[in-house]
Simulated scan of single mutants.
Amino acid sequence: MSISSVNAAGTVLDQYQIKDAEPKGKELGKNEFLNLLVAQLNNQDPLSPQDNGEFIAQLAQFSTVEGVDKLNTSMESMLSGYQSSQALQASSLVGRKVIVPTDKAMVDTSETFKASMVLPAASSNVYVNVYDSAGSVVNRINMGQQAAGNVSFMWDGKDASGNLLPPGAYKFEAQASYGAETKGLTTMLPANVDSVTLGQSGGELMLNLAGLGSIGLSKIQVIGQ
């Protein structure tokens, strides 16, 4: 055996890297790594065998590759369990009412509509404009002076003249006065969950709300009956 061929065999592992590292050339799995290590041992120079330290380092590389494979398997198992948990959680939400940060809601005007707003600072005058599906103002809920925090409000489903309006989609525009300035507020409105959509590749669970579209589960403030 020529020394040149021994050197070539002795450096054959240098052409590869462990999986999940930046590749120099080819991707190396644990089986390929072991085959190359055996080939290197078979072709080493008997008069100048491989250094013990270098051999141990290569075995450590092999152990690392095998550990990464086991870790990937464990992570895949955890992800599968998480997705199953999401599916179970999703099935329990269908048909229930949730509170979400939105300015639109499907309102059954035969019942008192209850919602809330977020007031960042105390205001001398807080009110809520109610719009119908055509964008026309049908009523204003005057709440007067309010302290900072979550502020509840109600609407009886009637217009400014006291006429009962039909059920359907309505928009709620909450505003607060601060001196000569008026600021819009975030409203928390109820909605019914029609169905759910599981996120792709472990993504967030999406709730499909009646008349409102989809919203991520993380944005839900309260889950009701």
Rank of each mutant, 00 (worst) to 15 (best):
F172I: 02
Q50F: 02
V100Y: 04
A210V: 15
S123W: 04
L207M: 07
E22C: 02
Q145H: 03
L164N: 07
Y170M: 10
A169P: 04
N139P: 06
S91H: 02
G199T: 03
S2V: 09
G203C: 01
L209T: 13
S123K: 01
M78K: 11
E32I: 00
S110H: 12
K97D: 15
M188Q: 10
W155F: 04
P49Y: 01
L185E: 11
N7T: 14
V38T: 13
Q15D: 12
F172G: 04
K26G: 11
T112S: 09
M1V: 11
Q145V: 05
S77V: 04
P190Y: 08
S195I: 10
K19Y: 11
M78E: 14
L207E: 06
L217C: 07
S110L: 14
N192P: 10
E22V: 14
D20W: 09
N31T: 15
A191V: 09
E204G: 00
V100Q: 03
G67W: 01
G53Y: 00
F172A: 03
G203A: 04
L212W: 07
Y82W: 08
L164A: 08
L47M: 15
K114E: 15
V126S: 00
N163R: 08
M206H: 06
A160D: 14
I215L: 06
G184H: 07
N150T: 14
F172T: 01
V107H: 04
D69V: 08
K219P: 00
G67Y: 07
N43W: 05
E181D: 15
M154S: 15
E32L: 02
V137L: 12
A105N: 05
S48L: 11
G179W: 01
E204P: 01
A160C: 04
D51R: 09
F33T: 00
A134E: 15
I56T: 11
P101F: 00
K24R: 14
M143D: 05
G216C: 03
D194Q: 09
V68G: 06
K26H: 03
N7Q: 13
P190G: 11
V118N: 05
Q83K: 09
V38E: 14
N129H: 14
E173D: 15
E22P: 12
